[in-house]
Nucleic acid binder design. Structure first.
Lengths: 154, 154
DNA sequence: GAAAAAAAATGAACTAGTTTAAGACTTTTA
DNA sequence: TAAAAGTCTTAAACTAGTTCATTTTTTTTC
């Protein structure tokens, strides 16, 4: 996926790892999420509103995804209303985790955010570069390096 | 609502304004959201999982709310399955705005966050104190004061 | 398996945001 | 309507995080 596209699919990952990110005016990447097996990814805002996305998606490993088109997504609910419930619960859980992420981003220091993320998602931390983790935590790779050195020294 | 409680209701606001916040170990408030007329508020995580909340909710104006209990929330979907769709859409929209908030919190400077928030929610900014806005933007009231002075000087 | 490319580490100089403290202004309460 | 409490402003000293430049280490490619 490329910024400027109108998102045509939401993706379910069956294998691999992807990063979803924006580039700021200086070209620096800001990573919104890492998606691994059993995660959904895409840009929901663009998928729903049909406005062009500001996100890029890139695989960080060889990956396999299943995509659902907007037409099929809408059809799904028409044909099998039980899926409303499935997606209600999916969105509810995602919402809870994004509320936490937005609060932590604004109230914790970078070091605290790193420690929390590593505790919560050790399996993801082990699969990505330190540089990408910095882009997710919201700091520079240099500062990420310093934090890791400091935390490991303990 | 008080940290430590298990949330019994999700609230719909018919009148007024409330702030949802946590207190950190130093007792400093971090505001998660302001909720005004037609917003839903509460702590969804606690409402769903029945674990005690870490949030406080306080009205910043005389307010009127409607609360739905967990039992009635579940009953609603059983009795009127169309509400699954309503809540799916509600959560989807909330999710889109929390994804944006979490990304902005990690990629924009405090000044940029202030300008964005004021542009997007001018009606809320006018109803709350500068101190509470600082708690929402993720900075100290002192720095909020400097930013406002600086932005207005232009 | 050598060369090239990318990632990670280190350090010095810098900037965004915090802390502490004090005074001015505004709102609430008795 | 005076006093008290809370909010806002300002400023100086500080700290978390950035920037830029260089070196080392790891990964990729041919």
């Amino acid at each position: 996926m490329q910024a400027g596209d109108v998102t045509k699919y939401e993706y379910f990952i069956t294998k691999g790892c992807l990063k979803v990110y924006t580039l700021d005016e200086d070209g620096a990447p800001h990573i919104s999420m890492f998606a691994i097996e059993d995660y959904w990814t895409g840009d929901m805002a663009s998928f729903i509103t049909k406005e062009p996305t500001r996100y890029f998606i890139k695989a960080t490993e060889d990956s396999e995804l299943l995509g659902i088109s907007r037409a099929n997504y809408e059809l799904l609910f028409q044909e099998i209303p039980k899926f409303e419930r499935f997606y209600r619960n999916l969105y509810q859980r995602s919402l809870i985790s994004y509320i936490r992420r937005s609060n932590q981003g604004l109230s914790l220091t970078a070091e605290e955010r790193y420690i929390e993320y590593k505790k919560k998602y050790p399996n993801i931390v082990n699969r990505i570069t330190q540089k990408d983790l910095a882009g997710y935590i919201g700091i520079t790779p240099e500062f990420m390096s310093k934090i890791i050195t400091k935390v490991n020294r303990r």
